[in-house]
Nucleic acid binder design. Sequence first.
DNA 1: TGTGAGGGTTACAAAATGGTAACAGATGGC
DNA 2: GCCATCTGTTACCATTTTGTAACCCTCACA
Lengths: 213, 213
Amino acid sequence: MADVLAFTLRRAGFDVLAVYDGGAAAAAWQHAHPHLIILDLNLPHLDGMGLCRIIRSQSDVPIIMLTVRSGDADVVQGLEAGADDYVVKPFSPSQLVARVRAVLRRTDTALLPVELAAGDLRLDRARNEVHRLGLSPVRLTPLETRLLEMLMLHAGQTMTTDALLNAVWAAEGGDRAMLKQLVYRLRSKIEPDPARPTQIETIPGIGYAFVVR
Amino acid sequence: MADVLAFTLRRAGFDVLAVYDGGAAAAAWQHAHPHLIILDLNLPHLDGMGLCRIIRSQSDVPIIMLTVRSGDADVVQGLEAGADDYVVKPFSPSQLVARVRAVLRRTDTALLPVELAAGDLRLDRARNEVHRLGLSPVRLTPLETRLLEMLMLHAGQTMTTDALLNAVWAAEGGDRAMLKQLVYRLRSKIEPDPARPTQIETIPGIGYAFVVR
DNA sequence: TGTGAGGGTTACAAAATGGTAACAGATGGC
DNA sequence: GCCATCTGTTACCATTTTGTAACCCTCACA
């Protein structure tokens, strides 16, 4: 199983280190400093859930869990243990790759510079503030920051609803209503005229796009 | 079995190439560059699982596996080998067609470039907009975009009604009336004179063709 | 000349989408 | 304990998108 995953991910362009039991995983993690960990719940020697807690207690590295069972309890338990996302077996390779990309995309931003600029907006990610040329800074909530972050990061491109849901809510799973609300709230903070948005454009049927002029 | 599948799929509008053993499949795959492969696990000469791995090691083409056994292990093994989906025999033709559509939908158009140009039309798939030389852009609905996408992708060729139904409605299954309507609506948006279509030509009894001049 | 299929047009109904608003639980500071 | 903030939830509305049905015209063909 580990080998197949490694194969699939390498084909998708990732650099992969595969190990075959919990102890080895714990050791490898310390040495390799991976950008992301995929953890099977059923591991020999040291179970995935416990390992997840251990890793999480010492690092923020994103973790994706693999599980055979799809029971709600499992999922909840996994997320509580600190997993960033989970995939239920059986799954298709492309699905896993998609999840990996989504998680990396989401956490990648942790490595981003503190200040993000696009158009005449400047986002201070450390302080959750947006600055607009000359005007006084506006304070954002954590969620609003993550949404704006994604939009500015892909300024000029259309972000699909799904991509944004992934980016902002990750494994917790947001729905369209939540995104709708969040966009509304963000707009009311950063748009000169919220009723006629110029910064965050709606692309009907697809998603939203940050407009640079 | 292969012939039955081929018949079913052709009736659904697909262009099918059937081969009867693993060796022939490997050869055919290289020459034909199919958009999707349906692979029986029980093949003479070279088993499906192995062939799947070989193909997968060299290409991203979507693969659907057929098998008699329904055990979880099998499913996992198949997906591990790189299959995108899995159908257990016996199955109904319509189920298979639905799977094929779903898989194609997931993988096919997603690989397309964002901008598609043909004649003096330019389709922006990210924004659901068509641009015509000099004129202001026209907004399309998601369905209209998918239809125009298919037509432009095969500019100059005649697309059969069935092929278009497949492309646009996929698993949800559209009928002729719906396509008729959609063509009408698309024409009224992109034709200079909708009453005398020049871009989207009707090929009576067969389908439609995108005309490049 | 009648008939029917194919296709265009029109009109309307159903469903989805997106913006707005109000409210409630959770959280955290004071 | 009190208050403000953040977030999720729900409801409402307008608009757009999509599906459905009816009607018409044309053309091939008996």
